[in-house]
Computed example of a mutant assay.
Amino acid sequence: MAKIGTDIDHAAALLREGKLVGIPTETVYGLAGNAFDERAIMKIFEVKRRPATVPLIAQTSSLGKAKGFVKQFSKEALLLAGKYWPGALTLVMEKSALIPDLMTSGGDTVGIRIPNHAMTLQLLSRLDFPLAVPSANIHGQKSPMTAEEVNEQIGDQIEYILDGGKCAVGFESTIVGFSNGLPVILRQGALSKENIESTINNTIN
Rank of each mutant, 00 (worst) to 15 (best):
I158Q: 11
D7N: 15
D101H: 01
A81C: 05
M145D: 14
A88F: 09
R16S: 12
Y160E: 11
Q122N: 12
I196W: 06
L63Q: 07
E26A: 03
C167K: 09
L15G: 11
L162Q: 10
E172T: 14
K193C: 08
Y84L: 13
Q72P: 00
M119S: 10
M93P: 06
P24I: 03
L124M: 08
D108S: 12
V21C: 11
I158H: 12
A12L: 13
Q72D: 06
F36P: 00
S198N: 15
S125T: 05
R39H: 05
K19F: 12
G107H: 11
D101Y: 03
T120W: 03
W85H: 08
V110T: 05
L20M: 08
F36D: 02
I23V: 15
G33F: 13
Q141A: 11
H10V: 07
T53I: 01
N202I: 07
L63T: 15
E172D: 15
P55T: 00
G170E: 07
T203Y: 06
G140Y: 10
L127W: 05
S61E: 02
I114N: 09
S173V: 05
Q157E: 15
G18Q: 11
L79P: 09
E197H: 14
F73Y: 10
T6K: 15
G111H: 10
G30H: 07
K95P: 02
F178S: 02
K166E: 15
T146G: 10
S105T: 10
D101M: 09
K75V: 13
A97V: 05
G177D: 04
T146S: 13
I161M: 10
A168W: 04
E94G: 02
L78P: 00
A32F: 11
G189A: 01
S143P: 15
Q188R: 08
G106C: 04
F36Y: 15
K67R: 14
T174V: 14
F129G: 03
H10F: 15
N151P: 07
V47K: 05
S192V: 08
A81P: 03
P24N: 05
E194Q: 12
D7I: 04
A168T: 11
I200S: 08
I4Q: 12
V184Y: 00
D37I: 00
D108L: 08
E17T: 06
T60C: 14
L15N: 10
R187T: 03
P100S: 02
A35N: 04
E26I: 05
E76R: 13
H10Q: 14
S143R: 12
S198V: 02
P183E: 00
A77R: 07
E148R: 15
A77M: 04
Y84G: 10
I57A: 04
R126M: 10
Y84R: 04
T174L: 09
L79G: 03
Y84F: 15
C167D: 06
H117G: 03
E38S: 12
A2Y: 01
L186K: 12
A2M: 07
P144S: 14
G33W: 04
L182R: 07
V184H: 02
G189R: 04
L63W: 02
